[in-house]
Design a protein around this nucleic acid. Structure first.
Lengths: 126, 126
DNA sequence: GATAATCTACGAAGGATTTCGTATTTTAAG
DNA sequence: CTTAAAATACGAAATCCTTCGTAGATTATC
């Protein structure tokens, strides 16, 4: 039922990440946090959030005079489809080439290493 | 020295992937292979390749009456920067969250599993 | 209740991407 | 040489994304 097709744009993703962190928030709050990274006008953030509402990425409800916006799409969902898209479009379907590539360029910390080993172990058991 | 900034667009990436596979090719050849996925006119492919030449993504030389195009940017480079971008913009810097996410959704085959284990072992030695 | 502050709505500009039509050039055939 | 075929060059439309300005509405303050 949800909109699988709708991939947020870059600016939209910034806003989603703020909503995921803060939970339901006003345009004002979102805009203040956006302002730490980039300089844009208040109405730019407002317009983006209005468009995102039309697209069904977020929803809003009135609280007094202001709207409170809530993410409709989950962080997990976006991360998952971003990985799927990267695998399909850049790695031509080979997810493990992506994994190996990443492990070749970045170092896991101890905790991450344990988690990866646990996942690997699960694969070997099956 | 090379153009780190220049990320190919989606249509450009399609063309790059064809050039990576076939090696230096004509517009005609590239367009024929593009045609397997999507329906676009010949001049669309031509225009894209002209733009990519301007951007420095590919180069061309005359051979008789036609141009032979060659990728200037490597597959490895694109894959690497695509991962970097995904890590930074979607996973907020956590490359290992990307790795763990991917391992949670896709299964490695035997060979891939061995390679991953080898990489993991290298991390543990250090 | 007048004024200022805060929010929202809306239109539109500017840039990037993709697409194609048309015109031009070059090569090949008769 | 003339015509047809193949390739290139170029401009421009259509769409999407980001941005902002302006106008209107609502709320709070004095």
């Amino acid at each position: 039922m949800s909109n699988h097709k709708l991939k947020p744009t870059e600016a939209e993703l910034d806003i989603l990440q703020i909503l995921w962190k803060l939970g339901p928030s006003t345009v004002k709050t979102v805009h203040e946090i956006c302002g730490r990274h980039k300089e844009t006008g208040y109405t730019t953030t407002l317009k983006l959030m209005q468009i995102m509402t039309e697209k069904g990425l977020i929803t809003r409800e009135l609280s007094g005079k202001t709207h409170i916006y809530t993410a409709l799409i989950t962080e997990e969902h976006i991360k998952s489809s971003a990985v799927t898209e990267l695998v399909e479009e850049v790695f031509e379907g080979s997810a493990m080439e992506l994994v190996i590539q990443t492990l070749g360029h970045y170092k896991p910390n101890g905790e991450e290493l344990e988690e990866i080993k646990r996942l690997i172990r699960d694969f070997e058991i099956k």
